[in-house]
Structures are given as structure tokens and as C-alpha cells.
């Protein structure tokens, strides 16, 4: 029995070696460049919008962030709805998923997807399926940092 098991294990390892050789690798360096430029371009658009709000409306550098995020997420929503954002995602990878637009896309795409199951059980309960972990761990790590900061300030007096 053990002999048979060993044989099987050997066969598995052998095949996994073949597989490693045959598997088409992700073009990591090319992906990094694409992500860098697309991600950077999205941030550039964000910066343009921020500047726009500061110059033409009554915002300061501190307060212009919120309307900028809202605007850029609105455009993401349009791109997602027209079926363009997933194509950008396949091209840019992290470049389009790390900025706030990626977060917007994660929420909006699930909302569209589950429309067929109704507004409550479909859209309502699935909307944060992909974005949920970001919120949970985002809030949790902010909480931890806040505690550390508070303790630190107390000790330092």
C-alpha cells in the first residue's frame, strides 16, 4: 500500500514538473510597465480633476480629495456599465485595480451582475462581495493603527 502511495506521489511530482515547464508564464515585467503607466495615468487624471476643483470651485488642497474620488468613481461606473473597464483590467492588471477606480469597479460590476436576482437579495447582498474584504480589513487596520498611535502618544506624554 505504501509502495503504491509513494508511486502516486512520485507521479504527481513528476507531472507538476512537466506542468511548470509547459505553463505559459505571466509576462511579469511587461505587466509591471503596463500597470505603472495605466495606474499613473489614472492618478494624473485624478490630479487634473483635483486642480480643476481647487481653481474653479471653493476647495482647498485638503478638501478637494472627496469630490475628486466621487467624480472618478462616476466615470468608472460609466466605463464598467459600457463593458470597457474589464478590458482595461485585462490589459493593465494592478494598474487599474489598485487605484480607487478598481474599488469602484469591484462594487459596480457585482451590482450589475446580480441585478437578475433582484434588488434586495441580488444587488443588495452581493454588491460588496468583492469589495467587502477591502472595507473589513481597511477599517480593522485603521483601528489597530489608531490604538497604537493613542498608546504611543500617552507614553510619550
Amino acid at each position: 500500500m505504501t509502495h503504491k502511495n509513494n508511486n502516486k506521489k512520485f507521479e504527481k511530482q513528476h507531472y507538476q514538473k512537466i506542468q511548470q515547464k509547459k505553463e505559459i508564464k505571466r509576462p511579469v515585467i511587461r505587466n509591471c510597465f503596463k500597470a505603472f503607466f495605466v495606474g499613473g495615468f489614472i492618478c494624473l487624471i485624478g490630479q487634473v480633476i483635483t486642480t480643476f476643483y481647487i481653481y474653479f470651485f471653493d476647495f482647498t488642497e485638503q478638501t478637494a480629495g472627496n469630490p475628486t474620488v466621487a467624480t472618478i468613481i462616476f466615470f468608472t461606473m460609466l466605463l464598467t456599465g459600457f463593458g470597457l473597464y474589464d478590458k482595461l483590467g485585462q490589459f493593465a492588471g494592478a494598474g487599474s485595480s489598485v487605484p480607487v477606480t478598481g474599488f469602484g469597479n469591484a462594487v459596480i460590476s457585482t451590482a450589475i451582475e446580480h441585478r437578475t436576482e433582484g434588488f434586495i437579495l441580488g444587488v443588495g447582498s452581493n454588491m460588496f462581495k468583492l469589495a467587502g474584504p477591502v472595507i473589513v480589513y481597511g477599517v480593522f487596520s485603521a483601528f489597530l493603527i489608531a490604538i497604537i498611535k493613542t498608546l504611543f502618544m500617552k507614553w510619550m506624554g
Binding site: I24, G81, Q90, G93, A106, S109, T110, I112, E113
Partner: peptide, 17 residues
């Protein structure tokens, strides 16, 4: 796609495999 992977419009990058 929606059962096994991600929503259709979600912009994740799929590997070449």
C-alpha cells in the same frame, strides 16, 4: 464566469493559462 470566477464586468487580469 459569474459562478466560477468574477462578475463579467469586473476588471481583473487573467493569466495567459
Amino acid at each position: 464566469e459569474r459562478q466560477y470566477r468574477y462578475p463579467t464586468e469586473y476588471g481583473s487580469q487573467k493569466p495567459p493559462t
